[in-house]
Amino acid sequence: MTTTRLTRYDRSMLRLMNDRRAASWYATTARRRLTVAAHAALTLAFGGLMTHFFLAKGEPLWPVAVMVALLLPWMFATGVINGATRGLLELREHVLDERQSAERTRVLARAHRVMTLLLAAVAVSLLITGGVAGDAPKAYAAPLLIAVLVVHWVMPLWVAGWHAQDEPADDDVLEPGAVGV
């Protein structure tokens, strides 16, 4: 951390992001990756439901109800990922130590590269679809742009959660007879 004085908000966020009471949810790499996959699946479900809502004839309200029902598990998964990364992306820069700041930079760079590849794939698929159909699918442009914006927003969180490391083992715990005199 720098010598910048922490505000009450900074202290409360630092305390919240370093709260280890829910550590069992993200204690292993497999659990963290499962949480990231669940978060991505829930985000994809939101995108599909939003697309259906905007493109369906008669505008049924059931997609909105399902989106509201999926919001709580999505927020829970977001909290688990933030806890696993100790708030790497949620804390302000001056609250992070040098290692966390460097990790944040690596995560953002990796997320940027993944997002660039995803955007290129979407652009190519739209060009191919437009070439085959003879016209670009204009009805999907707005939902696709919204989906890309959402993925752009959560990609750093997914990358940070996917690459988060296990907590180091306690070095203070000595086994009986380990200290030789």
Rank of each mutant, 00 (worst) to 15 (best):
V159E: 13
A102R: 14
V122H: 10
A40Q: 06
L44R: 02
R33K: 07
A77F: 02
Y9D: 03
G47P: 05
L117R: 01
M13N: 05
D19R: 09
L61V: 15
M1G: 13
G47Y: 07
V154E: 04
S101E: 06
L117I: 06
E90I: 02
H94Y: 07
A136M: 12
F76G: 05
L42H: 09
L16E: 15
E103N: 11
V36T: 12
D135V: 01
L55P: 01
H94I: 07
A23F: 13
M67P: 00
L55V: 05
A109P: 02
K57D: 12
P156F: 06
H52Y: 10
L174D: 08
D97W: 11
H163T: 13
G87I: 05
A133D: 06
A120V: 11
G83F: 09
L126N: 07
M115Y: 13
L61Q: 07
A160G: 10
L118T: 04
V150W: 06
M115S: 07
G131T: 02
A30F: 04
A109R: 05
P73I: 07
V107N: 08
H112E: 08
R92P: 03
V68R: 03
L71I: 05
T29D: 07
F76N: 10
D171A: 04
A169T: 00
A136N: 02
V36K: 00
A178F: 06
L34G: 14
S12C: 02
A169W: 13
A178I: 04
V150G: 06
A45F: 05
R33H: 06
A84S: 15
A69T: 08
G130A: 00
R31G: 14
G87Y: 08
V159G: 00
T2N: 09
W162V: 01
W62L: 02
T4Q: 11
M155P: 02
V181I: 03
P176S: 11
F53V: 04
P63N: 01
A169L: 12
P156R: 04
G177Q: 11
L49D: 02
M67V: 06
L42S: 02
V179I: 15
A136K: 03
A133I: 00
V114I: 15
V173D: 11
V124L: 14
A169I: 08
W74Q: 09
T105A: 14
A142Q: 05
T3Q: 13
A77E: 03
